[in-house]
């Protein structure tokens, strides 16, 4: 069986990586980081999946999925949000100083 969930999340990570390296706009780069983050979180959640199982809450009859990845991803999401908030505020700061978000213009690279 091919694990579509795994492949899809890894594809998200690869797409995010591509955006971070290829794009020259700060907001796009930050979005790329976010896509990578989402990919890893999805991957983690799908590791904990058990076929025909439900959420691990006791008043629902089992079987349950693995609760640990969900708990870890909850932490990872909050961390991702924090990094995004800081990255965006740094981008705002760069915009205030230079008036642009294009890396080539900021660094004075000639095309």
């Amino acid at each position: 069986m091919i694990q579509y969930y795994y492949l899809g999340s890894i594809a998200l990570i690869a797409i995010g990586m591509y955006i971070v390296i290829a794009k020259r706009n700060l907001i796009k780069i930050i979005l790329g980081l976010d896509i990578m983050d989402t990919g890893v979180n999805l991957l983690f959640i799908s590791i904990g999946y058990v076929k025909n199982a439900t959420a691990p809450i006791e008043n629902v009859p089992g079987p349950y999925v693995d609760p640990i990845p969900q708990a870890l991803v909850l932490t990872a999401i909050v961390i991702g949000v924090s990094v995004m908030a800081l990255a965006l505020s740094i981008a705002i700061g760069i915009y205030k100083k230079t008036g642009t978000l294009e890396l080539d213009e900021i660094l004075g690279v000639k095309k």
């Binding site: 694990q3 795994y6 890894i10 990570i13 591509y18 991957l43 999946y49 058990v50």
Partner: peptide, 26 residues
Amino acid sequence: LAIVLAILIFIVFALAFVKIPFGEKM
């Protein structure tokens, strides 16, 4: 370069995750 790197990352990790079963019983 970025496309090559992205594809490389995809292949390398996909090969690792192919070995990990999905949705198995606990």
